[in-house]
Design a protein around this nucleic acid. Structure first.
Length: 821
RNA sequence: GCCCUGGUGGUGGAAUCGGUAGACACGUCGGACUUAAAAUCCGAUGAGGCUAAUAACUUCGUGCCAGUUCAAGUCUGGCCCAGGGCACCA
C-alpha cells in the first residue's frame, strides 16, 4: 500500500537497506548482452560529498540505468582516489594518521553515495591508497621502467615551498601550485619522469579519433602538446672555432634579418661563450634571473633585460658577424635554449633591440608594413639575396634546404609537452619501487618484492622535507641483485599516476595474481561513457591517454585510447558563483536528503540546465522538484487500486479522449528516449515527465470517463520513464502495485511511430512569410489539399484580395506559405 | 595576442532537417478551497500600439551590422560582449 502523501525519507531508508544487502547491480563479465562501461571520475575522499559529486554521479547513474534498461550489460563502478596532500595536511594538523583520516572519510562518503541510490557494483570498489591497489601502481611503474619510459634525471623542476614537493608542468597554473596557489620556484633536483613526450605525435594525432569528445577539451590538449614545425639552424662562434650554437625557429624565412642571438641564463655552455671581460656582468645577470619567481619571469608585461656575452657568431647566410647575448626571455627547456633574433619581424626581439640599441634589418615586406615598426606577419622576402621575392612557405622550405645542404641546419618538429615529473617528496603516495645499491647502482625491485609498503614509524611534524624521510625502517633495505645494504628511493609517486589506470582495475578488481586480465580488459575497454569535470581536461585525461598507449606498447592491452565518449559536466553554482567553503555558499547533500530525499536532489540537479553547462542551485528549484514528485506520487496513491499491471486495450475501440492520452504517452516515450540518447539532455527529459504528468491530470479531471487500462498504461509508462532518475520512488511505487521484479530490471519502454504523433495537426498559413491563420487539419493530407485548405481560409482571402499569387510553398503536416505581390 | 565555448522574456532554459520563437519550470499577479494560513487545484504572464476590453486586430522582438531564402534563433560574411584554456614556446 502506498501512503496518501509522499514521505521520501521512509521510502529511501527502506530501499537503501534492501539494495545494500543484495548488491543488485553486480555485473558479470561473461554476459551474452553487449557490454557498456559507464564511468565517473573517481572522487578524492576529502570528507564529505559536495554538489559537484552529486551532479557527476547522478548523470553517470542515469546513463548506466538507461543503458541497462536498453539491454546492455552495464559496468558502473566507483572508487577512491585516496592518496594525496590533504590527508597528509590533516595528519599534521590533527595528529591523525593519513590512512585513518582517509579511510574514515571514505566510509562516510560511501554511505552518502549509497543514499544517493547509485546503481554501482560495490564489489568492484577500488581504493588507490590500499596495498592491494598500489602494489599494481608500483608494478606498472616497473613495466614502464623496463620499457625505458620511466627514467631519472637531474633537471630544473617546479618546486612548491608550501607543499615542499616538486610539481609536474601540468600542475603549475599561471606560475602557481594547483593545490595551494602559492608561487612556484625552480629547483635543480634528480627526479623520476615518465616519457610522455615519446607519444607527443600520437597523443596529438589520436585526438581526431575521439569523436565523442568535446572540441574544448581536444583543443586544450592540442594546445598543451603544442606542435610546431620549423628548423634548427646552427651558428659558428667566431671566437671559438669548433663551437656551434643551434637555435630552433619557425621563421627560417627571416634568417637574413638576424642581428643577434640570445641564450637562456641556464644555457649549459654559457660560461664557455662568455668573454673574460663580460664574465662578471654575465654571472651577476644569471644570479638575478635565478632569484626571480616563475610568475615574474614569465610575465609578458615585464621589460626585457639581458647582457652581452662578449663573443660573436657568424650568420652563414650573410656572413655578418653579430653579438651573442644572455636574456631571460629565452627559455632553457624549449627548443635548444637559444634563440636567433630578428628584431624587425618579431615583437620580443623588437622590444629587446630597441632597448639595447641593436641593429634591425628588414627582410620581409607585405601588406601593412610600416617603416620602423615591427612586422611579424608572413610576407615576401626582401634583402635576402637569392631568396628575394619568395613567399613564406617557399622561403621557409628553400632556406632550410639551403642550410641542410650546407651542413648548418635541419628540418625540425618541436612540441611544447614536457616529460611528466612523477616524484613527490611526500609520504602519502605510492612508494617508488627502486633501491640504490653501492655496488649495483639504481636497481628496480622484482614483482615478488611488491608492494613496497608505506612505513608506520613516521614523524609528520617535520618541516621542509618529506615525512617519509624520517622513517629509518623504510630507508634501509637490501639490494635485490647482490644482497648488499642498500637504500630505497624516498619519494612517492604523483597521485595522478594512481588515477591514470584505475578504470582498468575496476574491470578485474579482485585479481590478486595480476594487475588485470588482458582478455577482460579488451572486452570492457575502452570506457563507453566517461563523465567528469572540465578541470581534468589536461591533467588526468592526458596522463590516462599516455598510460594506455604506454601499456599497449608494454604488450599489456590491445587498444589505443581509454575513453570513447567524454561528457564534461559544468560546475554547480549558487548565487552566480562556484560553490565553495570560503564563499559560504555550499549546500550539504545530507541536508537535501533529510529535507527532500535523494530523488528530489537527483531530479533537481538534472533539471534546468543541460549537463555540460553550469548549473545554478536555487532553493526554490529544489522545492519545485519536490512538489513535482509529490504530485506524481499522489496520482499513484489515488489510483493504486485501479492500476492494472497487465492493462489491455484496443486503440481502435477508444474514444478521442483516450486515444489522445495514448498518443501523448507514445510521444513521451519517443521524446524521452531521444533526449537521453542525444547528448544526454536530461533537462528536457524532465520537462517531458512534467508534460506527461500534466496530460494525465487533465485526463482524470472527469472521474466518470476514465478508462483504467489507458490510465494504467500512462501511469506505468511515466513511472518507467522516471525510474532512472527517481530511483527510490519508482521502486517503491512499482513494488506497492504488486510487481514481482524491480522496476530497474524492467526493459525500457517501446513506442509505436504511428501513435507517437497527435491525431491532427495545426496547419500554419502564412502570406509572404507572416502568419495569417492556423487551421486544424488531419495528419498526412496531400500538398494539394493543404493548399486548398489554406486558400479557403477567410483570413487569407481577406489578406489577398486583388493581389496576385506568385508562388505557394507547402511543407507537409506543417505549413503553407502563399507569396503574393 | 592565439584557441575554445556561449549570448533567446524578470530568471533557468526549449525549439530535432531552414518552417507557429519562448516548450517545461522558477518568479509574479489573479481566482477557488479555508475562520485564517500552509498545502492543493484552476487561470494569466515577451515588449509596445489600437481598444471600454484581459475580445479582435496590429507592429517590434533570439548580442550588433550586412547577406542568402518564399521563410533565418538556426545558414554565410563582418563585428561586439561574456566565460574558460594557453601564452616571452622563438
Amino acid at each position: 500500500m502506498l501512503e496518501k502523501e509522499y514521505y521520501p525519507q521512509q521510502i529511501e531508508k527502506k530501499w537503501c537497506e534492501v539494495w545494500d544487502k543484495t548488491n543488485p547491480y553486480k555485473v558479470e563479465s561473461n554476459s551474452s548482452k553487449e557490454n557498456f562501461y559507464a564511468l565517473s571520475m573517481l572522487p578524492y575522499p576529502s570528507g564529505k560529498l559536495h554538489m559537484g559529486h552529486v551532479r557527476n554521479y547522478t548523470i553517470t547513474d542515469v546513463i548506466a540505468r538507461f543503458k541497462s534498461a536498453k539491454g546492455f550489460n552495464v559496468l558502473h563502478p566507483m572508487g577512491w582516489d585516496s592518496f594525496g596532500m590533504p590527508a597528509e595536511n590533516a595528519a599534521i594538523q590533527h595528529g591523525a594518521n593519513p590512512e585513518t583520516w582517509t579511510l574514515e572519510n571514505i566510509s562516510y562518503m560511501k554511505s552518502q553515495l549509497k543514499k544517493l541510490g547509485l546503481s554501482v557494483d560495490w564489489d568492484r570498489e577500488v581504493t588507490t591508497c590500499l596495498p592491494d591497489y598500489y602494489k599494481w601502481t608500483q608494478w606498472l611503474f616497473l613495466q614502464l621502467y623496463k620499457k625505458g619510459l620511466a627514467y631519472k634525471k637531474t633537471a630544473p623542476v617546479n618546486w612548491c615551498e608550501k607543499c615542499s614537493t616538486v610539481l609536474a608542468n601540468e600542475q603549475v597554473i599561471e606560475g602557481k601550485c594547483w593545490r595551494c596557489d602559492s608561487e612556484v620556484t625552480k629547483k635543480n633536483l634528480s627526479q623520476w619522469f615518465f616519457k610522455i613526450t615519446q607519444y607527443s605525435e600520437e597523443l596529438l594525432k589520436d585526438l581526431e579519433k575521439l569523436k565523442g569528445w568535446g572540441d574544448n577539451v581536444k583543443t586544450m590538449q592540442k594546445n598543451w602538446i603544442g606542435k610546431s614545425q620549423g628548423a634548427i639552424l646552427k651558428f659558428k662562434v667566431k671566437e671559438i672555432p669548433d663551437m656551434e650554437i643551434p637555435v630552433y625557429t619557425t621563421r627560417p624565412d627571416t634568417a637574413f634579418g638576424i642581428t643577434y642571438l640570445v641564450v637562456a641564463p641556464e644555457y649549459p655552455d654559457i660560461e664557455k661563450l662568455t668573454s673574460p671581460e663580460q664574465k662578471k656582468a654575465v654571472e651577476e645577470y644569471r644570479e638575478n634571473a635565478k632569484k626571480l619567481s616563475e610568475i615574474e619571469r614569465l610575465s609578458t608585461q615585464r621589460i626585457k633585460t639581458g647582457v652581452p656575452l662578449g663573443y660573436h657568431f657568424i650568420n652563414p647566410f650573410t656572413g655578418r658577424e653579430c653579438p651573442i647575448w644572455v636574456a631571460d626571455y629565452a627559455l632553457v627547456d624549449y627548443g635548444t635554449g637559444a634563440v636567433m633574433a630578428v628584431p624587425y619581424h618579431d615583437e620580443r626581439d623588437f622590444d629587446f633591440a630597441k632597448k639595447y640599441n641593436l641593429p634591425m634589418i628588414q627582410v620581409i615586406d607585405g601588406e601593412g608594413f610600416v617603416e620602423g615598426k615591427c612586422y611579424a606577419e608572413h610576407g615576401t622576402l626582401v634583402n635576402s639575396g637569392q631568396f628575394d621575392g619568395l613567399d613564406f612557405e617557399n622561403a621557409k622550405k628553400q632556406i632550410t634546404d639551403f642550410a641542410v645542404k650546407n651542413g648548418f641546419g635541419e628540418f625540425k618538429t618541436q612540441y611544447r609537452l614536457r616529460d611528466w615529473l612523477i616524484s613527490r617528496q611526500r609520504y602519502w603516495g605510492a612508494p617508488i619501487p627502486i633501491v640504490y645499491c653501492p655496488h649495483c647502482g639504481e636497481v628496480a625491485l622484482e614483482e615478488k618484492d611488491l608492494p613496497v609498503l608505506l612505513p608506520k614509524d613516521v614523524d609528520f611534524s617535520v618541516v621542509g622535507k618529506s615525512p617519509l624521510e624520517t622513517s629509518e625502517s623504510f630507508r634501509y633495505t637490501t639490494c635485490p641483485k647482490c644482497g648488499a645494504k642498500a637504500t630505497r628511493d624516498m619519494d612517492t609517486m604523483d597521485t595522478f599516476v594512481c588515477s591514470s589506470w584505475y578504470y582498468l582495475r575496476y574491470v578485474d578488481a579482485k585479481n590478486d595474481k595480476e594487475c588485470f586480465n588482458r582478455d577482460l580488459i579488451n572486452r570492457w575497454m575502452p570506457v563507453n561513457q566517461y563523465v567528469g569535470g572540465i578541470e581534468h581536461a589536461i591533467l588526468h585525461l592526458l596522463y590516462s591517454r599516455f598510460f594506455i598507449k604506454a601499456l599497449r606498447d608494454c604488450k599489456l592491452l590491445d587498444f589505443d585510447e581509454p575513453f570513447e565518449n567524454l561528457l564534461t559536466q559544468g560546475m554547480v553554482l549558487k548565487d552566480g558563483s562556484k560553490m565553495s567553503k570560503s564563499k559560504g555558499n555550499t549546500v550539504d547533500p545530507d541536508d537535501i536528503y533529510k529535507n527532500y530525499g535523494a530523488d528530489t536532489a537527483r531530479l533537481f540537479i538534472l533539471s534546468d540546465s543541460p549537463p555540460a553547462r553550469d548549473f545554478d542551485w536555487t532553493d526554490a528549484g529544489v522545492e519545485g522538484c519536490y512538489k513535482f514528485l509529490c504530485r506524481v506520487y499522489r496520482l499513484f496513491s489515488k489510483y493504486q487500486d485501479k492500476i492494472n499491471l497487465n492493462y489491455n486495450y484496443d486503440i481502435k475501440n477508444l474514444d478521442k479522449k483516450h486515444e489522445n492520452l495514448v498518443r501523448e504517452v507514445h510521444i513521451a516515450i519517443k521524446n524521452v528516449t531521444r533526449d537521453i540518447e542525444n547528448e544526454f539532455q536530461f533537462n528536457t527529459v524532465i520537462s517531458r515527465y512534467r508534460e506527461l504528468t500534466n496530460s494525465i491530470y487533465e485526463y482524470i479531471k472527469d472521474e466518470n470517463t476514465i478508462n483504467y487500462d489507458v490510465l494504467s498504461f500512462a501511469l506505468l509508462t511515466l513511472l518507467k520513464l522516471m525510474s532512472p532518475v527517481c530511483v527510490f520512488m519508482a521502486e517503491e511505487i512499482y513494488s506497492a502495485l504488486g510487481a514481482k521484479q524491480s522496476i530497474h530490471k524492467e526493459k525500457w519502454c517501446e513506442y509505436d511511430e504511428n501513435l507517437a504523433k497527435s491525431s491532427s495537426i495545426t496547419l500554419i498559413v502564412q502570406i509572404n512569410g507572416k502568419i495569417k491563420d492556423k487551421i486544424e487539419a488531419p495528419q498526412d493530407l496531400a500538398n494539394k489539399e493543404l493548399e486548398e485548405l489554406a486558400k479557403n481560409s477567410a483570413k487569407v482571402k481577406e489578406a489577398i484580395q486583388d493581389k496576385t499569387i506568385v508562388k505557394t510553398i507547402v511543407v507537409p503536416n506543417k505549413l503553407v506559405n502563399i507569396v503574393v505581390r
